[in-house]
């Protein structure tokens, strides 16, 4: 089966004060339709840089990123923007909701950017907010919502255009453990029910244990990989810790 997204010997090198920093070093990765992949690693391991490359927000220094077999580096800025609007959903660590828009409007704006018809723009936002458990809070502004609620709105926004790929950058990083766990459960549920492909980066092994496949990243390189499908959390965590050691 053709992967949704694939990297081939991809590198990202930043120039900093005359020195170069290798954030991503020759990573090969392929994510299949319906997979839930977690990329786990400590701060500075290059996981966010890799996510930005997967999300068509950054260019690799070397190598290539293919989305549905299309090389991203050959796309124009407008084509990559359209790809982000239609095919990729983003969930950010700090939610990145538009502060002057209600929860409903935050979801609707993604539909607008994706070129959805008016009828869909009117119906789907509430439908999505109800799905993430925020129907009654749809008219609230982000500042009137808790952290967990804001991240649920961000998930609804990310799903608005039925993207082929959902990218989550430390989605539980700003949440307490209980809220974080329920959010991961929601992501897992979406992945299973809709066969929604999810790539999540996190530094938290407990969060990564919700994924089907976990890649451990350190110093810009994949140091290990394991499949957790069908395992309970306890056993999965043990397996991951062994990988880290």
């Amino acid at each position: 089966m053709e992967p949704i997204i694939e990297t081939k010997e991809v590198w990202k090198v930043y120039g900093m004060n005359g020195a170069s920093v290798e954030a991503v070093c020759g990573i090969d990765l392929a994510v299949q339709q319906g997979e839930f992949v977690a990329i786990v690693g400590p701060s500075g391991s290059g996981k966010s840089s890799l996510l930005h490359l997967l999300g068509a927000m950054d260019h690799p220094t070397r190598g290539e990123v293919l989305f549905g077999n299309q090389p991203l580096h050959k796309m124009s800025d407008a084509q990559r923007t359209d790809l982000r609007a239609h095919q990729i959903g983003f969930i950010f660590q700090t939610f990145n909701l538009l502060p002057n828009l209600s929860a409903l409007e935050n979801v609707e704006i993604a539909l607008r950017l994706g070129g959805a018809a008016k009828a869909e723009r009117q119906a789907r936002p509430l439908e999505l907010l109800e799905r993430v458990g925020l129907g009654p809070r749809a008219r609230h502004l982000p500042r009137q919502l808790s952290g967990g609620e804001r991240q649920r709105v961000a998930i609804a926004r990310a799903l608005a255009n039925r993207p082929r790929l959902l990218l989550a950058d430390e989605p539980t990083g700003n949440l307490d453990s209980k809220t974080g766990a329920s959010l991961l459960e929601l992501l897992r549920q979406i992945n299973r029910q809709d066969r929604q492909t999810v790539v999540m980066v996190t530094h938290d092994f407990r969060a990564a244990s919700h994924a089907d496949r976990v890649l451990v990243l350190r110093d810009g390189r994949i140091r290990g990989e394991t499949r957790l499908q069908g395992q309970d959390t306890h056993r999965a965590l043990g397996q991951l810790l062994a990988l880290e050691l």
Partner: peptide, 16 residues
């Protein structure tokens, strides 16, 4: 700036 960056990240074209 952050809102504009977010809009660009979720697919807002430059002309918008």
């Amino acid at each position: 700036r952050k809102e504009i960056g977010t809009l660009r990240a979720i697919g807002a074209r430059r002309w918008r």
